[in-house]
Structures are given as C-alpha cells and as structure tokens.
Design a protein around this nucleic acid. Sequence first.
RNA 1: GCCCCGUUCGUCUAGAGGCCUAGGACAUCACCCUUUCAAGGUGAAGAUCGCGGGUUCGAAUCCCGCACGGGGUACCA
Length: 487
Amino acid sequence: MAPSPTGDLHVGGARTALFTWLFARHHGGDFILRIEDTDRKRFVDESMQGIFEALRWLGLDWDEGPQVGGPYGPYIQSERLDLYQERAAWLVEHGHAYPCFCSPERLNEVRAAHRERGEPPGYDRHCRNLTLEQIAEYRAQGIEPVIRLKMPLEGTTSLTDLLRGEITWENRLLEDAVILKSDGYPTYHLAVVIDDHLMKISHVTRGEEWLPSSPLHVQLYEAFGWEPPIFAHPSVILKPDGKGKLSKRDGAVGVLEYKRNGYLPEALDNYLALLGWSSGDQEIFTREELIEKFDLADVNPSPSRFSFEKLLWMNQHYINHILTLEDLTQRCIPYLQQAGLVSDVAGDPSSAEHAYAQSVIALLKDRMKLLTEVVELTSFFFTEETEPYEPSLLVPKKTEPSAVGPALERVEAILTEADFDDEAAMQASLDELLAELGLKRGQLYMAIRVAVTGRTVSPGLFETMRVLGKERTLARIAAARAKLAAG
RNA sequence: GCCCCGUUCGUCUAGAGGCCUAGGACAUCACCCUUUCAAGGUGAAGAUCGCGGGUUCGAAUCCCGCACGGGGUACCA
C-alpha cells in the first residue's frame, strides 16, 4: 500500500488497500505501508496522519511502514532521495538513461505536433543521443536536466496481471519517460521500482490507472537487472452514473468522511470488498471469512459504480442485525455525549447511565441507518420533558378534537395504576379503554405517542413508556392535557 | 488522435461449452405483520447475456471484427 499524501484517503484507494491487505493476510504475508511524497507541489501536510487514521479505522494494520518501522525503512520516500539519485546516476552510467535539457515549451510543441499528425504522443527523444560536449554546453547555461529512461525502440514489453492475464505493449509506442525530475526528486516510476525491489515487495496491487505506465516499470526492472513483482490492477471505482471516476463532486469520497457520517468500518469494508469481488451468493462477511475467501485472482477487472444506496443498506444491516446491542451502545455513546444527552459516566459499561442508554438504543436498533442518527432518534429519552410540539399533533386523523383531552385523562388514570414493566398488561388495560371509548387503536395510541414522545414517529408505544418510566410518562401526558386545554 | 483495459437485470454481481425456462443482493412495486416509523416475511417486475460473424451436435461461456464504456497520454501520483 503506497498512498500519496495529497489529501484524504479515497474510497477507491481504500478498496485497493483492502484487497491488498486481505490478500496478504490470506497468504500469511506482510502488508507494507509506504508514503509516496515525491510531488512537493501537491503535498498536503496533515494528510499523512489522515491516511494512517483512515487505515487504522478500517482495520488495515500494517506490518512495516511509518509508525511501526521495519527492516527496509525509511518508509517515506522523501527520506530516501539519495537512493533514487544514486540509482538514476547508475542508469545513466550504464547507458539505460540520459539527461534531457528540453524546455517545457519545446515539450508542449512536440506533443501538439505529434498529436496533429495522428502519431503516438510523447517525447521525440531529442536529447537521447547528446554528445558529451553538448551536455557540457547545456550545463554551462545553468539548465538542470531531468533524467529519462531509454525505452527500447523495437520489440514488445509485457506483464502478466493477476486479474487480467498477459498484457503486451509495442515498445515503439512507449516514450522515454522522466524518472528523475530537475529538482532532484524521482518521479513515481523510479521511486516505486527501486523501493519495491529494495523492500522485497512480492505483489503490487494498484488501480487500473497505473496499467499504462506498467511497461515503463517493467523496463526499469529490466535495466536494473531485477526481477519484477507480480502485478494486479483492479479497476477504478466509477461515479454512480458511470460517467468517469468517483470524485469529490459525487459526495463523500474520503474514508474519514464516512467515519464522521456515522458509518461502521466493518460495513464500509464489507461493501468495498463486494465491489468487484464476490463469493457465491454470500453478501455479508466477517473479517475472518473475508480473509479466508478473498483472492485477488477472483477480482472482476471491469470498472464498477459506487452505490451510496447499497452502502447505506449495508451499514443499516450491520447496525440492525450484526452488531451486538452492547457493541452498538458503545459506539453510540460518544455521539450522545457530544450532544450533551448523557454524561461522561455513560462511557463506563457498569454505570446506570450506560445501562439506561443501552435500553434506549435497544428500541432504536432496527430504525438506525447511521450512528449519527442516534441523537435525533433518542433525544426525548434523555430529557425531562418532550421537545416542543404543535398541540394539533395530539389529535389523530379522523378523530374529534374534543375527545382527545378526556381520553388522555382516562389514560393517565389507568397508567397511574399500571405496572410499567409489564407491557402486555399495559396494552390490555388500554385496549379495554379503546373499546369503551369506541376508538381505533391508531387514534388513541397516536395521541399517547405524541404526548409521551412529542413526535408522531417513535418506537413501539409500550416499550417506549416502559423505558421512560412511569413518572416521566405521566408527567408528559399531564403536560399534553394542559396543552390541549390551553389550545 | 494514439495506446491499454473492459462489456450478464437500473446498480453490484453468479456463471469458467450442455446443470441457464440465466441465480443472488441493492433499489422499485404489491401483499402480509402492525399503535406510528422501521425491521421482518412472501411475491412481482426487471437481462433477446453490447452488436455482427465464426468454431461446435450445442455458446453468456472459445475465436475474430465492430460498437460502446472506462483508464492513460505531465519534470502528478
């Protein structure tokens, strides 16, 4: 895994990382993290920490890399510049590469001209055969050259991709790419080949966008006399409408955004794993099952679209059916604390406050899609009174407004005598009242629901009252009656 | 333009010559459950397997063209 610190870790990068991690874990190999910060213009300072945090959150721990060390460090490319410069010089000495003094303007002209003639684009190898004198002359002018790799002029270059099989390019169509920039930094191509070799990388998994530069890497291995690793290029992730790569404009793309938005890392992992990979009809996998069943060779090479809908379903499914109540409670409490609904003590599983929060969350478990929703969904359980509401909400459809007050008065009287721990008995006694008043269930129960919760949507009425407790329930009904009387 | 990769329900996919009257999931719709909202259950609809040629007794599956989609085409990764 070798991200660039140019911003947040993108879900596409996260998927590739997940594939790599699963593959490594499946085969008992090591998962190695390396930071590719060779582009000083695009470097974003905090993004390296963000990448670490995102990977950790997803559960993708690394065996070698920044923060954990390893035998082949440093694992940050900007700390390895000497290495690249030495090797680049070696390539030049051995006739595999050459300095190029061409100006950006000339390069642009060449590209434009090639394109106009319908020829393959790229560099025209102007500096490939400079004499020593010419080189000295350019240097005397103070021009810092780049180093370009000499690509073979004929023949073919191929590689065997784990997902795609053998892929072949004609050498005459490949250009002499820059491998060392004039600022002394390597380009991705040089750095990745040197590091992968030195760090003894066996498998390189990277996005499809790297496929076109792969023959260059193969030639670099060839020039160095090194054995190339095994390559795997999963497809890119497309926008939901399929028109191009998924990008910021399409919504959340940063892994940490999903964390902030209330997604579970296991749900994101599960969803991402299923994008381009599958195992029969199974859709929900534990981490262990994923490790056991995943294989890079089974990854579908065709691009797939990102579906926010299915990811949301996946998240909801995990909350509703996979997470234990205690686990869900633990994850919800920070949100409740942040909203000021529970105190710091609630974080302690042995506290009464924690137990109460858990009994509340139990009622909402099937209704929660995102962890962030817990605040909105449960707030009335943590306050003395309900939030303000329109008195008219107390009057259900097809119900005589004047009937509601007296009905609630009867309800209050009945509940005063009721055992709140016995939901069935509570319901039985209110059902009796129902018959007596000649009301339908929805009519009476909706009025009580609004009185007790301040809302028309809530968990089941009797479990809600049970958790809320007799005192608060009765007080709220009384408050509702007062509201009706005043209105 | 040039190079590379890809092409099964709207979407993610199963499918590696006969098991396919093409299976599952999301989304959609209907019904059931039901005090609201969810969750759950049942069912429906949805794919001439991009198109055209081959190979074969037989092709979604193999081969060749074409079309379309995506990626690349930087002193970015």
